[in-house]
Design a protein around this nucleic acid. Sequence first.
DNA 1: AATATTTTGTTGCATACACATCGTTTTGAT
DNA 2: ATCAAAACGATGTGTATGCAACAAAATATT
Lengths: 272, 272
Amino acid sequence: MQDRSMLNIAARKVGKKLKKQERRRQILLELKLRPHVRISTLAERFDVSPETLRRDLDALAAENLIDRAHGGASAPSQGLYPPLNERIAGRVHERERIAAVAAQSVHDGETVMIDSGSTTIELAKALAFRSVTCTVITNSLPVAMTLGHGAADVMLCPGEYQSAESAVIGTETLEFLRNYHVDRCMIGASALSEEGISETVRGFAAVKREMLRRAATCALLIDSEKFGITGLASAGKLDELDVLFTDARPRTGLLAALRAAQVDIVVAEAAS
Amino acid sequence: MQDRSMLNIAARKVGKKLKKQERRRQILLELKLRPHVRISTLAERFDVSPETLRRDLDALAAENLIDRAHGGASAPSQGLYPPLNERIAGRVHERERIAAVAAQSVHDGETVMIDSGSTTIELAKALAFRSVTCTVITNSLPVAMTLGHGAADVMLCPGEYQSAESAVIGTETLEFLRNYHVDRCMIGASALSEEGISETVRGFAAVKREMLRRAATCALLIDSEKFGITGLASAGKLDELDVLFTDARPRTGLLAALRAAQVDIVVAEAAS
DNA sequence: AATATTTTGTTGCATACACATCGTTTTGAT
DNA sequence: ATCAAAACGATGTGTATGCAACAAAATATT
């Protein structure tokens, strides 16, 4: 039996106190939308004592579903998803450096396509931080939200929502992209080798491929850990690229291939 | 388990303290990586007194660059829904009740259009909570993210991103909606009178209008405080509605008009 | 160098939160 | 209906944070 409160809803009498599990699920939902919740606020909202909320938060924190803070709790990461988080965890600073350098190549008034992924989210943060007044077309919800609150104009693509990356993909996305042509595109990828750019999920690769076609100059932002790997789905050949932003010089084989394809290589060095 | 990897950005020159501006810049950078920072942690890292950090956070909060919390601060909630203001806090429960009742009218396998707004976000939470396996088309990013992590299939509309509601609007949105036809639509609004449904922003009204046309049955979720008001932009006439979900019985004038338009009225009552 | 200005630290006190304990209520099963 | 288990609320105590006023230090200005 699903519980009695459902019967209450069926009887159109809602507003009874939520039970433990319902409350905790609501807390998690809330944290998908806001970065932080306060115990006092939640206690009032659920009409329970702060002690009960404290117990809820402690329980959720024990499962690593939230991060406790004094007086409240925050999401493990900003509306993003665990699998993404795990991957991000280690190389945060490399990504940040790559994004900061790449952001300098975007100027006011330009039109830019930005795809989904952890590195491009960092790019969006860097662009927002610099208040670049560009027009952005993206399929990533975090990128749209980050840039949309700043100086940039943001156009979001349609498509099927993928929770794993908080982005949209699919035929609607591709068809939409075909209606536009932009100054530059900035994409990420999960692998880069002499074979070209590749991705583990076909749908995301298709979006990158289309973006590469719709831009005058194409930039790839990628962690050097992903050099030399060839993923399942190809997102494009090396000669489709104009610039590569990364954090370490590629090894000889890849380096030669990149030079042959006339790709500018920009290495974001660690700050001294 | 908290990693200390972020230490590299911060003071590496031992003995020399960072200046105010540099410290605040680092706080903002930190908040781009983590959703929440604590005063005590930052004070230790920058080797300054908690009071200084408090002043820093207060200053940043005054510029709306961060959200203060007890003992720390979090990244500004990305315009996700504005109205958590204290004044409307009381109406949160009404919205929850309305959403909970409305959610039970949606069944597995149905196709649904959901528009943007605080009430529809509550609806999304209620649907996610009930794990309804429906297909949803929406122009609201919070709705997409909330439902997309659950059992529902979500299709996001294209369009210009509006930070005020974290949703997309514009000609691309309308054109996209015209390609679909769904079982039901669930919209919110900022006003309802005998004149019909209305909205303060033209672009959002246009989306609601289009959704009403594309659905077999149309539902409006609205707070009873908004009864009797006629807003700037009309989103539809009363006879386009099939069901009205609200929290209190409309007054005679509006009630008569709703009955004349054959609108079912469902009042979500508070549990006694 | 001397002074003015800004920034930071310190102190004392008020408040909010954390935590453990225990009594009460609710829930679930028989 | 009765009982046991779980969940919840209330209380008291201790700690962390907030706030305001003032003192000390660093910085800028002349």
